[in-house]
Design a binder for these strands. Structure first.
Lengths: 341, 341
DNA sequence: CACACATTTGGTAGCGCTATCAGGTAGCGC
DNA sequence: GCGCTACCTGATAGCGCTACCAAATGTGTG
């Protein structure tokens, strides 16, 4: 009478149900699904049939608990507006999914405090790996990461002090190269407009621009930065303010394409010819730079390639094939010379 | 001697460790963390202290297994390039995080097959809810969803046949209203360029345009669609091809801002004046439409608002306060009349 | 002081799965 | 046939947590 009082099962089909229905042991079913090669073909087929018939979906929580492993990879994204999102994540996720991992994405809005808080929530899932953007983290974040068993991957910029794995590009070099290109083209009064001024990426870009200017005996005096997200407004404002500071300005480097958009519109409004009156370039170009009028000289970063390299590096680490492997990969960049310079 | 041979614990601090160290029972610790009001203040404080001291992080897998509930919400995103991503997800995630839920994001690339596959993977996590974009799903997807205990939320478009909850806008109406606006402004030869032609959103937009044209005795004959993602190229191509078909074309509606960008550039290239020679509008405007030259008349959708309404609706459902509640919310849209028409 | 009642605490028995090991079966050489 | 390895299969004992009861403690009433 007092039989099933204590049951609180979810009603879902369980591994045991499959086992009973197939007339085999539970372990055999478990193996048939995870390591099929360890099960005879006969049983494997029979089990597969029952699985489909019953619509069995494994309970990952139980699996994770029993094995102490998990197939989730935590990714903390600083911004959804970035190109990273549209170009990087799809490729990255695809490769990881194929290897059986699940991305769990959090959003930090470029705040290291939020990053830290998110991280401690995400670590409760016991993820196999944690993927972060940028190289700036709170001390507590670094401590949490080092205490966790998870593999750590830092993306977006090459960082000497990376915790574990690191895939990215050298923003100092890219900015320097862009500046050198402009100088080679004969431009001399080169200004810089950048967003997210508190991020180390922008600081590196600024230093790259300054270095290239100085090595050519030019003064890197005029620049405008904002700590906001890159936007069109900043580009408009940049052209306006910098032209006031330096009326004979002849070139402008924008850290982001959105800024370059704004700058382009502002130049149109002022009937400034590009590149005759002023050259316009950006450091993270994609389709807009390639298609607008005039087409903009820009640094292009292959985020899909970055995703591929990053995912594969991470997988090697997760499968323990990373003994004698580079832990840091520089993706490089391409300077696309176009009509705007 | 044969004591600890069988241990395979992860080495992490567990709830039992905290309980022992605090000198209380495990259940009391569990309650102190999840339902503090059920524990006396004295014990609560003592436990909190020990938790911090030991750096205890709860194991969610175990919790989910024991309670049969999970705090993960699966979100299947069709595209990362969309505005949905940058505007919707941050707000949506923030509200859900605050309520203690975790977003697990998958990427379907607008393929209902991939959506189905992703879904079955994500359901293994036993999510509290599943959030999908669009209204088109495979039969198997619908079956999986209905079998699962999870709450279902369909986003982006209002859909009569929604499975459960539904928050979105009426794309038929928005397109119709835009067309009416153009007609009211005196434009008559109005063409349409749209991307993702196999999605029902675009089909509704096309029908809205057609309906508005017909009710004004105008022929909705000229349009160009592509099943690709919206891009600048399509806008350029649209202007070129439609102008060939109909040289006296006087207005163009673009389904996406990217297309409008391309159209704008192509018009500049052809030295067509906007709106004197041709009006240009789009159905999902944001900053570009607002800032480019001339500024584009566009339909604006408040994705942050959509996120707020959707998240709150979902939370009500998850806490069971949804008995006499609307299951479907129309977010509405705003027609921003600007210089381009 | 006995009693009902509310509040706080802890023991126990799972949740559904996998690691581990023991048992069974088959194949092979002597 | 026997011993030996190689392989396949299943019983058992947890993984760390929470639902469910039961016990303990406090509180107010007659």
């Amino acid at each position: 009478m007092e039989t099933l009082r204590k049951r609180r099962g979810t009603g879902r089909v369980t591994l045991a149900d499959v086992a009973k229905s197939a007339g085999v042991g539970a372990m055999t079913v478990s193996r048939a699904l995870r390591t099929p090669e360890q099960v005879s073909e006969k049983l494997r087929d029979k089990i597969q049939l029952v699985v489909e018939e019953l619509g069995y979906i494994p309970n990952q929580a139980a699996g994770a608990l029993a094995s102490g492993k998990s197939d989730s990879i935590a990714l903390i994204l600083p911004s959804f507006a970035d190109k990273v999102c549209s170009n990087f994540i799809p490729s990255f996720q695809e490769i990881l999914n194929q290897a059986g991992y699940q991305l769990v994405i959090g959003y930090s809005n470029y705040s290291i405090t939020q990053e830290e808080q998110l991280l401690s929530t995400l670590l409760a899932n016991n993820p196999a790996a944690v993927v972060l953007f940028g190289s700036e983290h709170s001390a507590q974040t670094v401590k949490l990461l080092k205490n966790s068993q998870a593999a750590i991957l830092e993306l977006a910029e090459i960082n000497e002090l990376c915790i574990d794995l690191n895939v990215g590009i050298d923003h100092y070099q890219s900015s320097k190269e862009m500046t050198r290109h402009l100088i080679k083209q004969g431009f001399q009064k080169i200004a810089f407009v950048g967003a997210r001024s508190e991020q180390s990426i922008l600081r590196k870009q600024l230093r790259g621009w300054q270095a290239a200017m100085l090595e050519n005996y030019l003064a890197p005096d005029h620049f405008l930065t904002s700590n906001d997200e890159p936007n069109i407004e900043l580009g408009c404002e940049g052209v306006a303010k910098l032209l006031l500071q330096q009326p004979d300005l002849d070139a402008l480097i924008c850290s982001h394409e959105e800024i370059a958009m704004g700058a382009l519109f502002e130049c149109q409004r002022r009937v400034l010819q590009i590149p005759k009156d002023i050259a316009l370039t950006c450091l993270d170009g994609s389709t807009f730079s390639e298609k607008c009028i005039p087409r903009l000289t820009s640094i292009e970063i292959n985020y899909a390639k970055m995703a591929g390299k990053a995912a594969r590096l991470l997988l090697q680490r997760l499968t323990g094939q990373d003994q004698n492997l580079l832990k840091q990969i520089d993706i490089g960049f391409k300077l696309c010379e176009r009509a705007s310079s």
